[in-house]
């Protein structure tokens, strides 16, 4: 939900990505956050780009080769993860030797460590979402607090408080229902 909100606010396809694999270690570890920026500037060697040529999860790797056509200004790009021994030719799904510029979703401009673990935990361990009520509340708090980090501060604190009150109200409601059941019985 936080991410959807970010996408809405920035109007970009995926302005923030979470690093999911260790292929860029020791630069980027699993759970780090990258801020992306997509400009019209041509891609150059050395830039860290996020590309997705039709797979489920986009990949964050470094450009090591660029061949830019004189006539079309289209570039053939080769990428490689810093920690990988091999370049990414084998990864490209579109059965060719080069990655085209159209598959590139953005280049990394900024970096924040660890913050992305919140989303990794959220997506990979959904059990956490259905812990008991109190844990859920703490989890929500952490989630929202991290979003403060990235988003408009005041608005979200109000929203988080409303959610907190909603949760408490739910708790009271369930308590009251339990009480009712008791009295009827």
């Amino acid at each position: 939900m936080v991410w959807k909100g970010l996408i809405c606010i920035t109007g970009s396809e995926s302005p923030v990505v979470v690093v999911l694999t260790g292929s860029m270690e020791p630069g980027f570890k699993r759970g780090d956050i990258l801020f992306l920026y997509m400009s019209k500037d041509p891609i150059r060697a050395g830039e860290i780009v996020v590309f997705n040529d039709g797979r489920k999860v986009p990949i964050v790797h470094r450009v090591i080769e660029v061949h830019e056509r004189r006539d079309t200004r289209e570039a053939d790009i080769l990428t490689k993860g810093d920690a990988n021994d091999m370049d990414d030719r084998v990864l490209y799904t579109s059965s060719q030797h080069w990655l085209q510029q159209k598959y590139i979703k953005g280049r990394a401009v900024g970096f924040l460590p660890y913050v992305g673990y919140v989303t990794i935990i959220m997506t990979e361990k959904p059990v956490i979402k259905v812990w008991n009520c109190w844990n859920f509340k703490v989890f929500m708090l952490i989630k929202w607090s991290f979003s403060f980090f990235l988003l408009n501060f005041f608005k979200l604190s109000v929203v988080a408080l409303i959610i907190l009150y909603c949760l408490q109200w739910c708790k009271q409601l369930t308590k009251r229902q339990g009480f009712c059941r008791l009295s009827i019985c």
């Binding site: 630069g27 060697a45 090591i64 080769e65 660029v66 061949h67 200004r73 810093d82």
Partner: peptide, 13 residues
């Protein structure tokens, strides 16, 4: 054919 070719030869951290 190409207005720019960049080929990485060596890298290090």
């Amino acid at each position: 054919k190409n207005s720019l070719n960049q080929v990485s030869l060596w890298d290090a951290i």
